[in-house]
Simulated scan of single mutants.
Amino acid sequence: MTSWKTAYRSLYYEGAPEPPDPILVKGKTALLVIDVQNTYFERPDRASLSGAERARYDAWTPFHERMAGTVMPTIQRLLQRFRDGGLEVIYARIACQTGDGRDRSLSQKKPGWNDLLLPKDEHASQIPASIAPKPDEIVVIKTTDSALTGTNLRLTLTNIGISHVICCGVFTDQCVASTVRSLADESFDVIVVEDACAAGDHALHLKELEIMNMIYCHVMSADELIGYLP
Score class of each variant (00 low, 15 high):
A55F: 00
A55G: 00
R56V: 09
Y57H: 04
Y57D: 03
Y57E: 03
D58P: 00
A59G: 11
A59M: 13
A59D: 14
T61L: 06
T61N: 01
F63I: 08
F63N: 08
H64C: 01
E65R: 03
E65N: 04
R66K: 11
R66D: 07
M67I: 10
M67R: 09
A68D: 04
G69R: 06
G69C: 01
G69H: 05
T70W: 03
V71E: 00
P73N: 08
P73Q: 08
T74S: 15
I75R: 10
I75T: 13
Q76H: 04
Q76C: 04
R77T: 12
R77Y: 03
L78P: 05
L78I: 08
L78S: 08
L79W: 01
Q80N: 04
R81K: 06
F82E: 02
G85T: 05
L87S: 09
L87D: 05
L87A: 07
E88M: 07
E88C: 05
V89H: 04
I90G: 05
I90T: 11
I90H: 08
Y91M: 10
Y91E: 07
Y91F: 15
A92H: 12
R93D: 13
R93T: 12
I94M: 12
A95C: 12
C96E: 13
Q97W: 14
Q97D: 15
Q97N: 11
T98D: 11
G99W: 09
G99S: 06
D100G: 02
G101Q: 06
G101T: 10
R102E: 14
R102S: 11
R102W: 12
D103V: 13
R104K: 14
R104Q: 13
S105D: 15
L106Q: 13
Q108H: 15
Q108P: 02
K110G: 06
K110I: 13
K110A: 11
P111N: 08
P111I: 08
P111G: 11
G112K: 14
W113D: 14
W113S: 12
W113G: 15
